[in-house]
């Protein structure tokens, strides 16, 4: 099976490559190697987690996979596309058609209702026609159990409800891959497990690949494939029983 994400020796360095003066050091211009020659492959319909302490490079890696940033070195393919050479506009278009995002702080648009937040990617990114749009929004809101709350604004929802809306928004556009950076960091454990169970359920139903990052060991166990990161390097891969072929 063709890998959905293929990374070969990807390295990400922030700032200047070498320090030329004392000011460079104090100003933070000195090179920071956030990722160092990381290679991995992720198959479609996987439920993958990148785990590691703060500063290990999880967010950087997710940003690279999500075409929000580009690696300094290496090769990265997402959904069969070499994302290194995409322009800003092409990246935006690629994200809109292939990727979904779930953020730690939910990042719902405060002036839009639940329904409108979920509708946003269909309307503003994919230009899906009205009838089809309504069907997909309803199905997604039903899947995350938010149909009753569809006319509420984000500030009227609890953290868990907000994240369920964010999941619906990420999935409504039928992405090949959903990226979630610390999706449960702002939730209590009970809600966090509930949110993850929603993600898993939708993965099963829609066969969408989920990649999420976390530093919470209790949450990590929910993933089927776990990549460990430390100081920008991939230090291990755990595959749950029954997922060995992934």
């Amino acid at each position: 099976m063709m890998a959905l994400v293929r990374a070969e020796n990807i390295t990400k360095i922030y700032g200047a490559v070498t320090a030329r003066s004392k000011e460079d050091v104090t100003s933070g211009a000195v090179a920071t190697r956030a990722l160092n020659a990381v290679s991995f492959e992720i198959e479609p319909s996987s439920f993958v987690s990148f785990v590691g302490p703060s500063g290990s490079g999880k967010t950087t890696l997710l940003n690279l996979i999500g075409c929000l940033d580009k690696p300094t070195e290496g090769k990265l393919e997402v959904a069969g596309v070499d994302v290194l050479h995409l322009s800003m506009r092409q990246s935006a278009s690629f994200r809109g058609n292939n990727l979904g995002f779930i953020f730690q702080d939910f990042n719902l648009i405060p002036v839009l209702t639940v329904h409108e937040n979920v509708e946003y990617p269909l309307l503003m990114v994919q230009n899906v026609p009205g009838g089809q749009r309504r069907e997909r929004i309803f199905a997604m809101l039903e899947a995350v159990g938010m149909v009753d709350q569809k006319d509420k604004y984000p500030d009227q929802l609890s953290g868990g409800q907000k994240q369920r809306v964010a999941i619906a928004r990420a999935l409504v556009a039928n992405p090949k891959l959903v990226l979630a950076d610390e999706p449960t960091a702002n939730l209590d454990h009970k809600t966090a497990f509930l949110v993850l169970s929603f993600m898993k359920k939708l993965r099963d139903e829609l066969e969408t690949t989920f990649i999420f990052s976390t530093h919470d060991q209790k949450i990590v166990g929910e993933a089927e494939i776990i990549y460990s990161l430390e100081d920008g390097e991939l230090t291990g891969k755990q595959v749950k029983a029954g997922k060995e072929n992934a």
């Binding site: 935006a92 690629f94 994200r95 809109g96 990727l99 648009i109 946003y120 990114v125 928004r169």
Partner: peptide
């Protein structure tokens, strides 16, 4: 918010 809408693919 701009970052969010840009990330989810708004041109």
């Amino acid at each position: 918010e701009i970052g969010t809408i840009a990330a989810i693919g708004t041109l």
